[in-house]
Write a protein that binds this DNA or RNA. Structure first.
Lengths: 192, 192
DNA sequence: GTCTATACAATGATAGAC
DNA sequence: GTCTATCATTGTATAGAC
């Protein structure tokens, strides 16, 4: 289907994961990643704005999925229903293989402040997108913001539990449990 | 009190703000900032890990203040009392001049993805610190996390309101109002 | 203990050829 | 879409001056 090997971005991700596992993130140059994928540094930076984005290339699609999930919720849905619809869509976008890749990436993030900063930026991008959609549906910016924070927290905490201690459960269930735990703790905030 | 001009970091911040206002963040080099402050690039990087940190140098102190605020709350304080104590301390650490500097920095952040990423990282650092302290006092990680998100949101939204439309009010009051608004909206999340 | 001089590796941008 | 080549800038490292 063309003069070059297909799936350039995927090949770059794969090459990066191997090299980072061997040498660490900092000790690996963009040129090395490109070379292992059979490309040059210039080409890598044509596909990704920076070295970090090679690892986070999956996130934008997740955001779109979450938004679509909220938007496809039925008309009479409650605030919490909308949030759950978004999270469910998000979770179902994960294929089982991503559990292992996710673990790998999480380890790299934990070891690199540079990656941690980008990871938090991505997390906040999901929250912001969720907030916007929820605000449209609910007509209440504050409620939307609070809900988005809650949902994103449930998603990240859930993902972490899922890949650490609940590997055989479905991600959607773990996240739903986490969200339910927040619900049951909220009355303590309001003052009972 | 020494052989050199005092307040090196403050001078660098001042120089950076002037140059960024003139030329924008991207078009200003670290060397230019240093030169305007009467220093060299080497010295700038001795004081700050990177160019962005010149702008965010105030944040670490704010984190310490917020934590101290929570820790100094009386023994019988409720979860919400603890959060309010932290936020109050945070707000009172702001001197009036910081309203204008804060506005300036916010404009720069809005115009630069690079700065936005760092700003979000700083926000999350405040949330994480708050969460840790609250968890210690409350003995409940989940509650602490949810509370920290809520508090940090109130602080940032409050700051934004304060510098945009409520300049003459006290920051602490604006933030307290914002937090109260979240409290009143929370029952809608629990499901009434 | 803070600053400077110099040299250096890596990022990321850019222009032009295939 | 990729490559070669070149480039400015970031940020580091070293060794020394006051």
């Amino acid at each position: 289907m063309g003069r070059w090997e297909p799936d350039t971005r995927g090949r770059l991700l794969h090459a990066a994961l191997e090299l980072f596992a061997d040498q660490g993130y900092d000790a690996t140059t963009a040129a090395q990643i490109a070379e292992r994928a059979g490309l040059t540094k210039t080409t890598l930076f044509r596909h990704f704005a920076d070295k970090r984005e090679v690892l986070f290339q999956g996130q934008p699609a997740l955001v779109a999925v979450a938004i679509a999930g909220v938007e496809s919720a039925p008309e009479g849905a409650t605030a919490l229903d909308l949030l759950r619809a978004g999270l469910l869509a998000l979770c179902e976008a994960h294929v089982p293989e991503q559990q292992e890749i996710g673990r790998q990436i999480d380890r790299l993030i934990a070891a690199s402040p540079e990656l941690k900063e980008r990871a938090i930026f991505k997390r906040s991008a999901i929250a912001a997108a969720l907030e916007t959609t929820l605000a449209t549906r609910l007509g209440d910016r504050r409620l939307a913001g609070v809900l988005a924070d809650l949902g994103v927290r449930a998603y990240y905490e859930g993902f972490s539990l899922w890949s650490d201690t609940r590997r055989d459960d479905k991600l959607a269930d773990v996240v739903a449990d986490e969200l339910a735990a927040y619900e049951s703790v909220l009355p303590q905030v309001t003052g009972r």
